[in-house]
Write a protein that binds this DNA or RNA. Structure first.
Lengths: 165, 165
DNA sequence: TAGGTATCGTACGGATCCAAACGATTACCT
DNA sequence: AGGTAATCGTTTGGATCCGTACGATACCTA
């Protein structure tokens, strides 16, 4: 029994374990790789960039979303970040307590609340994002540019087919 | 301000927002796609396959790991699944309470504990995994086989370069 | 214009997760 | 041999996250 297992070893062991079953190994390996990659990337970005600024991964995504889109309704922020509405309430509360975002109740529909970056939040993003992106760039540095493009396109089509139904 | 944003729209908006900065857009889009894909895939598999069996995503990964490798020390299970040792303690406790796994203290090193599937756990995996894989296959169904292979390889090299340092 | 339906943001319970601290056990080193 | 260092699994505390339920508000239709 080996101590540690690389992705490749795991895939080989999987084949042996279930070789008597009619399974789609390519699909299984692809999705396992996606999940591991997402975890690894998130962990590294969190530790290297976010933690020194006392920012959560989710909190950063919220800030980043508002940075890109200027102002958004809470439901759209949640959907864009990939968390539930209820989760966003707590995250937004934390970010607001730190003065990084503002809540702006809608005048047209009083059920709605818009979120946007405060000046402090904007300044924070301006200073953090270049650093964040530099780490991103380093992470994908070993992957050929063309392969990276294919990967991104494949992931995108996968997201669409997975979210649609 | 649009209501919903596709990955493509988000990438376009990102460019406009930060076009004055010297950034690596390909890297940013790639990692955003990975994260969204992982979330979407995990959500769909959880809802479609795991929830009916009252299984957590993490719990299933633990079972799956033990299914593939027969028996493992807890530290290796945690590392393989991508969670901390402390988290695994709780998850393993839950799975053991349901009689799906067994704890086997090591005789050679009394600090170590090995985990393995019980008979009930083995039967559960035998019945669930074909269904799980069928959904996996459906998710990647729209992606060309060759592109899928490139994507998987790119993700794998990305995991390695991201976990190494 | 009144009542039913839909959707908003929020509150709450439970599960998951991590980082740090801890006691127990083993390995190393002089 | 004996003491220090390293590593094991666990515990603890706090943050995150989801699903559900809820009141409030807006829309719709007869």
């Amino acid at each position: 029994m080996p101590d540690r297992h690389t992705l490749e070893e795991t895939e080989r062991a999987t084949r042996e374990r279930v070789q008597h079953l009619p399974l789609d190994f390519a699909a299984s390996h692809a999705l396992l790789s996606i999940y591991r990659a997402a975890n690894a990337v998130r962990g590294r970005l969190t530790n290297a960039v976010l933690r020194p600024h006392d920012l959560t991964w989710t909190g950063f995504l919220v800030l980043w979303t508002l940075w890109i889109w200027d102002s958004m309704e809470t439901r759209d922020v949640a959907e864009s970040v990939g968390i539930s509405k209820g989760t966003l309430t707590g995250v937004a509360k934390t970010l607001m307590a730190r003065g990084l975002i503002d809540r702006v109740p809608s005048t047209e529909d009083r059920r709605l609340v818009n979120l946007q970056l405060s000046e402090a939040g904007l300044a924070l993003m301006d200073s953090i994002y270049p650093e964040f992106n530099k780490t991103e760039s380093r992470i994908v540095g070993n992957v050929d540019a063309e392969q990276l493009e294919i990967m991104t396109a494949a992931l995108r089509s996968l997201v669409e087919s997975s979210e649609s139904d």
